[in-house]
Structure formats: structure tokens, C-alpha cells
């Protein structure tokens, strides 16, 4: 119960930060960090506790809802939601790939307390890249000026990765809280 509540609070806080702060950042005219992704990254993984059947559907629903709410404020209905769902589909595979062959016992939340920097960096980078690629492509919806679109994707990804890693290391490096 505590776990669910903390996740919900984190999602709400992430949404508030995204809607009221990050959406107003337009670095170099184009780059907007997708800060709210950190709440989705921190959702429980498959090896955590709880009924497995409901975990992934719950993640998809949370991702959809958050993306939808962000979309409502950016007037791009469906774009962020679709990007979030596609990102969440890839999330278990990325975790499996990073964990490698070793089986992880007990608490496996992707936070700095459990993982090393390389793990955290690649995890954040790959998932952010997927999310931003889908989002920016759906938003521009054209292959004209593809170089510019690519630059926006990469710039957004770099910005988002930096911000999310900062948040992770600021608030989730304590082993006790993880």
C-alpha cells in the first residue's frame, strides 16, 4: 500500500513539475525536457513484489494517463501518451538487457541505491531516446527537415537524461529509502 501511494505521489509531483515548469522551458528555442519520465522509470520492475499479472497493465495505464495529462496541456492529444506506452513496452527488455544473466534478488528498483552509474545512465538514455523519438516524430509528422527533427530528438534526450539523473542521484541514492 505504501508502495502504491508513494508511486502515485511521485507521479503527481512529476506531472506538476512537467506541466508548470518544464513545458515552459524552450532551450535554444526547441528543447524541452520530459522530466515526468522519471516517475515512469521508477515504477516497480517485474522482479519486485506484487501480482505480476497486473503490474504491466498498471504501468501502461499510468503511462497513458500521465502522457494524456501532459498532452492536454501542450495541445498535442495522444502524442505523449503513445510515446509513454511504447517506452513502457520496451522498459522490461531494457532492464533485462542491462541486468544481463545475473538474477536479481529482492528489491530491483532502478535507482542509484541499487544500480551503478553505468546501469542508470544506459537505462535512462535508451528509454528517453525511445520516448523522445516517438514523441517528436508524431508531433512533427514529416520527414522534411529530418536533420532538424533529429537534432531536436537528440537535444531533448540529452537534456532529459541530465535532469533525470540529477533527480535520481539527489533523491534516490540513499540505500535506506530505496
Amino acid at each position: 500500500m505504501n508502495n502504491v501511494l508513494s508511486n502515485i505521489i511521485r507521479c503527481v509531483v512529476a506531472l506538476l513539475l512537467q506541466i508548470f515548469i518544464c513545458n515552459y522551458i524552450h532551450l535554444f528555442g526547441y528543447l524541452t525536457p520530459a522530466l515526468y519520465l522519471f516517475a515512469l522509470f521508477l515504477l516497480p520492475t517485474d522482479s519486485g513484489s506484487g501480482p505480476t499479472v497486473l503490474r504491466l497493465p498498471a504501468q501502461y495505464l499510468i503511462g497513458f494517463t500521465m502522457g494524456f495529462i501532459v498532452d492536454m496541456f501542450t495541445h498535442t492529444l495522444g502524442v505523449n501518451a503513445a510515446a509513454c506506452i511504447i517506452m513502457l513496452i520496451f522498459r522490461p527488455y531494457v532492464i533485462n538487457w542491462l541486468n544481463g544473466r545475473k538474477t536479481v534478488e529482492g528489491n530491483d528498483r532502478p535507482v542509484p541505491a541499487n544500480k551503478d552509474f553505468r546501469w542508470m545512465f544506459w537505462f535512462t538514455l535508451v528509454l528517453t531516446l525511445i520516448h523522445q523519438t516517438v514523441m517528436v516524430m508524431l508531433e512533427t509528422f514529416t520527414f522534411h527537415h529530418f536533420g532538424k527533427t533529429l537534432l531536436v530528438i537528440l537535444g531533448n534526450t540529452v537534456l532529459t537524461v541530465i535532469v533525470i539523473l540529477c533527480i535520481d542521484y539527489l533523491f534516490y541514492s540513499d540505500t535506506k529509502r530505496a
Binding site: F64, G67, H75, T76, L77, G78, V79
Partner: peptide, 10 residues
């Protein structure tokens, strides 16, 4: 649902 929303709103 997302793509329907995209198609309808944008």
C-alpha cells in the same frame, strides 16, 4: 486510442 486522438486532434 492514442493514434485516434492524434488523428482527431491534430
Amino acid at each position: 486510442i492514442c493514434f485516434v486522438l492524434i488523428g482527431n486532434s491534430m
